[in-house]
């Protein structure tokens, strides 16, 4: 015999289904709207404008009415930020998981605080650091690609540290002790056993952090991104970026064509982040065992 659920239970179940379907509907509307409006603009002209793609890709000719400079800007920004953040985050994560004993554990509090600081405040920090250095040390320094990358690196640093630390700490004790029992030093254990074992956790953390760098707008708004700068020429120059372009278009588009480009840029950024996100999930499931065999 089946007991009929009570009214209160049934209401709760109904509400849960309502929420679930509601969220899915919202998701479908957001994605559907973007694709419906942006799909048609996904053509080579969206990226290269009137410039021949090959000429643009070889940096022989400037692209004026396409997304190419913004894409290259975001790409250089992300690469630079991750070049700064990954070694730092990995080293700090290794320290937290493998060396840190006793009161040094409190360092974790500061990573949590940093993780909670709003990105606009980190951007503001980048800006004030630039002002400070400009006044006292390098008169040539203005908000630029390098400053943005540094600020973005600070933004994702806590995620990298935490994911590295967690991945290392999740390794069971039997595995953790096997190499030291054979005479391995702590450093050998870290590089020969522990890091390879936690590669999937660490690399999915890196992929997620990359996505975060690619999508953040608030940090770069304060540290050097501009609406039109062409291909970034130097680390100390201003640059364009996809997320800022999207914001800029939404606030002041001059023509239907520009608006259409904005939708195209939104679809591209969504696609890039989705790709990184999916890669992070896939990596978490694969990769692990490949390393030792090579």
């Amino acid at each position: 015999m089946v007991r009929a659920p009570r009214l209160r239970d049934r209401a709760l179940i109904a509400f849960s289904w309502f929420s679930g379907l509601g969220l899915l509907a919202i998701f479908a509307v957001v994605i559907g709207f973007l694709l419906a409006r942006g799909w048609s603009s996904l053509r080579p002209e969206l990226i290269f404008g009137d410039t021949p793609p090959v000429q643009a890709l070889l940096f022989r000719q400037q692209v004026f009415d396409g997304l190419f400079p913004a894409i290259i800007g975001t790409l250089s920004l992300v690469l630079l930020a991750m070049t700064i953040a990954v070694p730092l985050g990995l080293a700090a994560g290794i320290y937290m998981a493998e060396y840190c004993r006793g009161s040094a554990r409190r360092l974790g509090l500061f990573f949590d605080i940093l993780a909670g600081v709003p990105s606009i405040v980190i951007g503001l920090f980048g800006l004030s650091l630039t002002i400070f250095l400009h006044r006292h040390f390098f008169g040539r320094l203005y908000p630029c690609l390098l400053v943005s990358a540094l600020a973005l690196a600070f933004l994702v640093l806590p995620y990298l540290i935490r994911s590295t630390q967690t991945a290392l700490e999740e390794i069971p004790r039997t595995v953790r002790l096997s190499a030291p029992a054979l005479g391995a030093s702590r450093l050998q254990n870290i590089f020969l056993v522990l890091l390879p074992r936690s590669l999937k956790g660490i690399s999915s953390g890196i992929l997620l952090a990359t996505g975060r760098c690619a999508e953040d707008t608030a940090v770069i708004m304060l540290t050097g991104v501009v609406a039109s700068a062409g291909i970034p020429r130097s680390l100390l120059g201003s640059y364009e970026a996809l997320p800022f372009y999207i914001y800029y278009i939404s606030s002041q588009y001059g023509s239907r064509q520009e608006l259409q480009n904005g939708f195209g840029a939104a679809v591209i950024l969504l696609f890039v982040c989705a790709l990184l996100f999916t890669a992070a999930l896939v990596v978490r499931h694969r990769l692990a065992k490949r390393f030792f065999h090579r």
Binding site: T174, V175, L177, S178, A179, P180, A181, L182, G183, A184, S185, Q188, V193, R197, A288, K289, F292, H293
Partner: peptide, 25 residues
């Protein structure tokens, strides 16, 4: 130095703990 000592005092655990690698490795 602990690694020096552990190379001379071998240890085998309750559950076998091969590394995820080939027998030879």
């Amino acid at each position: 130095d602990p690694p020096w000592l552990r190379a001379r005092v071998g240890m085998v655990f309750q559950a076998p703990n091969p590394l995820p690698a080939s027998i030879y490795k």
